[in-house]
Amino acid sequence: MRFLIIVNGILERATVYLLATEGSLIVQRAGLLNLGIEGFFAIAALVAYAVAVYSGNIVLAFIAAAVSALAFNMIFTVLTVHLRLNHIVSGLAVSMLGLGLSYSLGVSLVGIPLPSSISMPIVNVLGLELDPMILMSIIVAVLLWYLLYRTKLGYQIRIVGENPHVADRLGVPIDKVRYIATAIEGVLVGLGAAYYSLVVIPEWSTGVTLGKGWLAIALAMFSLWHPIYAIGGSYLIACSDSLARVLPLLGVPVSPYLLYALPYVLTIAALSIVSYVEIKKKRLGIPTALAKVYSREERARKYT
């Protein structure tokens, strides 16, 4: 029985990571390194919680989270795509704004429980409690794979991330493609964040989302920006995440505080190994223009 609870915990956490990773993956494929994800993850988690508390409607809460994340993500898109500003610093700015807003506006929600109407329809399979979002996250991964490798938009996203100069000259509408990618990211990350604050951690406390968004960026990288590999990556990190909760319960004498670092240690290790083995080979078909500002008429720019 305890085993099933653990597995359920892993499934739930993996769903959050998977949705956020798929979101980050698609913008990275379009050549944008969006560190702002941490910020709108926090915003969407708060919006979902607030809407859930005040309306009692879970569907509405998910929609509101997706819309708010999408809207907030547009700040990053304007800064980097139109104003050609540095991706990393723009992303940090969006993150700070998002975290600051989310935590200061969320103070009034601390300690207020979710209404009982907020619950997921659950299908019991072999003792596991599966809800629609767990399934949906897998479907999203498959759909994104189809989008990236089987549709025109997918080709466009990939070449914009690989070589924006050529894409531009081929007539690919770079700005539009990047907008679509960040919109998809906003929606997916928003859904993941809502799932996190409503289902995984069904209460609001300050700092609850910390680090989740940035972890997704690394996850997308070490999954080699492939939507299907990202499933494996997300479940791996979700397992290590659960370990921090499970080991002390089993009486293993390890400090839970140290175990909290485990997903991050694992992520760094995986990222390094994958980078060393795959990316260093200068493999074709990866977003080589990641985090590089594209400006049609300019040859080179300082500090970008």
């Binding site: 549709t151 025109k152 080709y155 070449i159 070589n163 000259r169 081929l170």
Partner: peptide, 19 residues
């Protein structure tokens, strides 16, 4: 003006805005 990682067909299709 061609994308190295794609095939000739894929390049032509993209240039013509087709799938």
């Amino acid at each position: 003006i061609l994308v190295d990682s794609l095939t000739v067909l894929e390049n032509l299709a993209l240039a013509l805005d087709m799938s």
